[in-house]
């Protein structure tokens, strides 16, 4: 296969970026999308050009590093996969593919397709935890948790923090990410004691980071590689109201 690429190139955060055209020949349908980039980069290096920077690590869809906006969609045309799990057989010979970084004020570009998602870490640091020091825990089975609640908490906890939700949302809102963590911890009894403080702190941090607000388009959930449900956002809204109305 031959593939035409339009890739966002930007030297660093201060520089101005632009879309540049590249041609990749000898693309095998069995290649992953990132392997196609490896081949292109190898080519650029031999030619003496600057290879394209992009984030990636586990290449099996769980670390959440990869973050390409492909033909107008985060992680490309397939549902339920990350960029690293997308293969070239999803494209046709001669296709032109536009590849951009996640776009959000809260995700400044480091270089080319790599963005800074540390805002997510700061949101977790604000409250995305249960305050329990190592060594204080009681026996794990002293606290029975219904299977349904445990399973639901797991579904929320499956978030990989890739930021596709922010990338997909027309408002660059981080509500799905934040609500997934709030939901996981509020569905479990361990999370109850500090539930009110948690949701307030996390929402405040989310707002401070400059993410947009939610207008319930559902794009986040539709593009989420882990299928995190919109009900998480509703749950966070509820938690936030009750925390404000009845909290300190």
């Amino acid at each position: 296969m031959k593939i035409n690429l339009k890739v966002w190139r930007q030297k660093n955060n201060k520089a101005k970026g632009e879309l540049k055209d590249y041609k990749v020949d000898h693309v095998s349908p069995d290649m992953s999308f990132l392997e196609m980039f490896d081949v292109l980069n190898e080519d650029l290096i031999t030619k003496g050009d600057d290879p394209i920077a992009f984030d990636h690590d586990c290449r099996e869809g769980i670390c959440g590093s990869c973050s390409m906006h492909i033909n107008g969609r985060p992680h490309g045309p397939l549902a339920g996969v990350t960029t690293c799990q997308l293969h070239m057989r999803s494209f046709k010979d001669g296709d032109t593919i536009v590849v951009e970084p996640w776009r959000a004020g809260a995700f400044p570009v480091n270089k080319d397709l790599s963005v800074d998602r540390s805002a997510f870490d700061r949101i977790i640091a604000a409250g995305g935890f249960i305050s329990v020091n190592t060594g204080n825990a009681q026996d794990a089975n002293n606290l029975p948790i219904g299977k349904e609640a445990a399973d639901e908490a797991f579904m929320s906890a499956a978030c990989i923090g890739c930021g596709a939700c922010v990338a997909a949302c027309k408002n660059a809102s981080a509500m799905l990410f934040v609500s997934a963590k709030v939901s996981q911890l509020s569905l479990l009894p361990q999370g109850q004691p500090e539930a009110k403080m948690r949701v307030m702190a996390m929402v405040n941090q989310m707002d401070a980071e400059g993410f947009g607000s939610c207008t319930n388009t559902g794009a986040c959930s539709a593009e989420c590689p882990k299928g995190i449900d919109l009900s998480n956002i509703a749950r966070m809204n509820r938690e936030f109201f009750s925390a404000n109305l009845t909290g300190k």
Partner: peptide, 23 residues
């Protein structure tokens, strides 16, 4: 909300993930 995305996408396929009216 517009401010939350200062640089727009060159290619944005919203129809793939959300209803036209919601956007």
């Amino acid at each position: 909300n517009k401010k939350a995305r200062p640089v727009q996408y060159a290619s944005y396929n919203g129809n793939a993930n959300s209803n036209w009216s919601s956007r």
